[in-house]
């Protein structure tokens, strides 16, 4: 004999729906997919600002903390890899390595152009050490500001020389 369940009432239905209404979003407050997409659009919207036309890069890491610059750099170097994204959307792998003074390094673009970099304070809008990733700003000598962004799990690299007194070895300008 077939069992027949009692028909659900309007009140029971409303109670069920009310329970579903109580469910709160516990997921992330942003989408990595959208973040990446918008980042690319932002870079593409400024196509005249190409890294390849600059000679000197200043890497800002001011948001890392209030301690000494060297300590902040060391922390960054030890804990993060990154991707440098220029405003034309080109991405460069970068790896932060420890350096005695933590103040300079060399950045090599895909076309082989080499640029010196300096680390300067108070030039960053987002902490690149954030466990969730973040964005730092690279200030070029001509005023361009491509960004360095890190996402959890990224394997990018940014190589810093052991010397901080090198001048740009070449420029494509």
């Amino acid at each position: 004999m077939k069992r027949t369940a009692p028909t659900i009432t309007n009140k029971q239905l409303d109670e069920l729906l009310a329970q579903a209404h109580q469910r709160q979003w516990a997921g992330p407050d942003n989408s990595p997919e959208i973040n990446h997409y918008l980042k690319g659009l932002t870079m593409k919207s400024q196509p005249n600002r190409l890294l390849s036309h600059s000679a000197l890069i200043l890497l800002g890491i001011g948001a890392i903390g209030g301690g000494s610059l060297a300590a902040a750099v060391t922390h960054t170097i030890m804990s993060r890899s990154a991707v440098l994204i220029t405003q034309d959307g080109t991405e460069y792998n970068v790896e932060l390595l420890e350096t005695p003074d933590g103040a300079s390094g060399t950045f090599v673009t895909n076309d082989g152009s080499t640029f010196d970099i300096d680390i300067v304070d108070q030039e960053v809008t987002v902490d690149v050490n954030s466990p969730q990733g973040g964005t730092s700003t690279v200030i070029l000598d001509n005023g361009m500001t491509p960004s360095i962004s890190t996402d959890p799990g990224q394997t990018a690299s940014f190589k810093i020389d052991q010397s901080n007194d090198e001048k740009p070895s070449e420029s494509d300008e």
């Binding site: 028909t7 009432t9 309007n10």
Partner: peptide, 9 residues
């Protein structure tokens, strides 16, 4: 309501 009732059955 009908679907919920069927599920109950």
């Amino acid at each position: 309501k009908h679907e919920l009732t069927c599920q109950g059955e």
